[in-house]
Amino acid sequence: MTVRRTVQRSARARTVALVVAGFGLLAACGDQQAGAPVTSSSPTSGGSSSSAPSDGVPAASAGDLTVVVDDGAGEQRTWTLTCSADGTTGGDHPDAQNACAAVDAAKAPWAPVPKDMACTQIYGGPQTAVVTGTWRGEPVDARFARNDGCQIARWDRLAPLLQPGTAVSERSRGGA
């Protein structure tokens, strides 16, 4: 009888641990970002509108980026964006100030979703984007899509960069 109770308790403990781990994965879906950017470069552009860094990051936060967004229906838009250490923005991005602020506020903005991440199977649309250049002195070559919950959350964290005129929701700001 004692062995049976021990086995039952052990099975319950494993079940509880799996449930807790499952909730942890779901909560982290899209917020977990690991990996490192890959090399690439982009042209720079001068700028004129002012943008104070959103998280007080020192001068190393400056970046020069090229953003190519494909709407999934055959139309591509390409923008350049310069986020200077002194707070000025430039390039031809339609919402440069908010785009720089969104990238600056994001934690590991270029990191891909880890391959072993459990993600909800929600389709957010056919849009894709490629961002290349440099950010905080590091090369950037990042791909974005909207084909599952993790990818949508990743896209949403950088919405002002990828979809000018879009605000970042408070929920999507908290990335890991």
Rank of each mutant, 00 (worst) to 15 (best):
Thr2Asp: 14
Pro164Glu: 05
Gln163Val: 14
Trp135Ala: 08
Gly74Glu: 03
Gln97Leu: 00
Ala106Asn: 09
Ala60Glu: 15
Ala59Gly: 12
Ser41Lys: 02
Pro53His: 02
Ala27Val: 08
Asp64Trp: 02
Leu162His: 04
Thr82Phe: 12
Arg5His: 05
Pro53Thr: 10
Ala101Glu: 10
Val69Arg: 01
Arg171Gly: 04
Thr66Gly: 05
Thr39Ala: 15
Gln76Tyr: 04
Thr39Trp: 11
Val68Ala: 14
Gly124Met: 06
Ser41Glu: 10
Pro126Arg: 14
Met117Lys: 04
Gly56Ile: 06
Arg157Ser: 14
Pro53Trp: 01
Asp70Ile: 05
Gln32Phe: 10
Gly137Thr: 09
Gly133Asp: 01
Gly91Pro: 04
Ser54Asn: 07
Cys119Phe: 01
Ser48Lys: 02
Gly175Gln: 15
Gln32Ser: 15
Gln127Lys: 15
Gly72Trp: 07
Thr44Val: 08
Arg5Pro: 04
Trp79Leu: 05
Val113Gln: 11
Gln127Thr: 06
Ser61Trp: 15
Thr66His: 00
Gln32Cys: 06
Asp148Ile: 01
Arg14Leu: 10
Ala153Tyr: 08
Glu75Ser: 15
Arg4Gln: 10
Ala106Tyr: 11
Gln97Ile: 07
Trp79Thr: 07
Ser54Thr: 15
Gly165Pro: 07
Thr82Gln: 13
Val113Leu: 14
Pro160Glu: 00
Lys115Leu: 00
Thr132Trp: 04
Asp116Thr: 11
Ala145Phe: 04
